[in-house]
Amino acid sequence: MAVAKKAIVWGLFAAGGTVSSFVFPALITLFFLIAVGTTPDGLQYEKIHEFAASFLGKACLFIVISLSLWHAAHRLRVVFHDLGVRKDKVVANAVYLAAFVGTAMTAFYLFLIR
């Protein structure tokens, strides 16, 4: 079963890496625009709330965030190993738990937006 489990972990990692590679540069740019004080119209409350309240908006946000979190968690697990931390069980539990908590928070907050 070890092989089958690895395939799922690796599959989620690859999916998250692809999604974050495509979406995050635009996302970071939007945060940059917010930071310099030129918040785009679509990110004003009315518009962004409408987007996050729609089914399609919720689905996009949930897929992007949850896959990205899994990607980051798996990569961070390997980074810990590369930096000389040899307690893989502890590290794996911690990073995957963080990803799970983030995913649950995403689902919860999206559920509240209507």
Partner: peptide, 16 residues
Amino acid sequence: CLLVGFYSFLVIFGLA
């Protein structure tokens, strides 16, 4: 991966 994690949680705080 640190940036991916950071921005993911930044978005989550935004959703909240």
